[in-house]
């Protein structure tokens, strides 16, 4: 087992474990902290795929900005376990059954997708994820969606002002 493989399995286990902890934690603050661990593990995966820019952006935007905002909101709302609305047992059962069905479909997909099995991800090589190539793709092949997304951000900004203004 090479170093990259060991790292891969370690990061995967870490991501899965902390993602489950996000769901099981009773305290919302703990959930958020576990979510930050998930983001770090996923950023580790990006580094393994030689996509350093994506890894850093993931950390700065998600683990940095958004999670801090999340923590603030949760602390301001002062959530505790008593305030949590009680779910009916049937609702829980329905959730478990439909979620389980979806999991089964996805697992069977991965097992049956024979055309996927010969392909492997490029680990530690390839230069698609480097900032130079990313910028080139963004301003040549994907320039139309890049420019059109400005409309999206503009409308989001207008919305923030409309809702925020008295």
């Amino acid at each position: 087992m090479s170093t990259i493989q060991i790292l891969f399995f370690f990061l995967t286990a870490l991501a899965l474990f902390s993602a489950i902890m996000v769901l099981v934690s009773k305290n919302p603050v703990h959930s958020v902290l576990w979510l930050i661990v998930v983001f770090f593990a996923i950023s580790g995966h990006y580094v393994l795929l030689n996509a350093q820019f994506l890894a850093i952006v993931n950390l700065i935007v998600y683990a940095g900005a958004i999670m801090v905002l999340f923590l603030f909101v949760i602390m301001l709302m002062n959530l505790n376990s008593e305030a949590e609305p009680r779910k009916h047992i049937w609702m829980k059962m329905a959730g478990v059954i439909s979620g389980g069905c979806f999991l089964m479909v996805l697992v069977s997909l991965v097992r049956q997708a024979t055309d996927m099995q010969q392909r492997t991800a490029l680990m530690g090589s390839g230069n698609v994820g480097l900032i130079k190539n990313l910028g080139k793709a963004l301003f040549s092949d994907y320039v139309v969606p890049f420019e059109i997304s400005s409309v999206l951000f503009l409308s989001a900004m207008v919305g923030a002002i409309v809702i925020g203004k008295k």
Binding site: P145, S149, V151, L152, S155, G159, V162
Partner: peptide, 21 residues
Amino acid sequence: LLMMFLGIEILTIPLYILTAS
């Protein structure tokens, strides 16, 4: 699919705000 995603988002995000107007 990329343009479809952008289109759907540009369509819905202003609607969230108009709903809250």
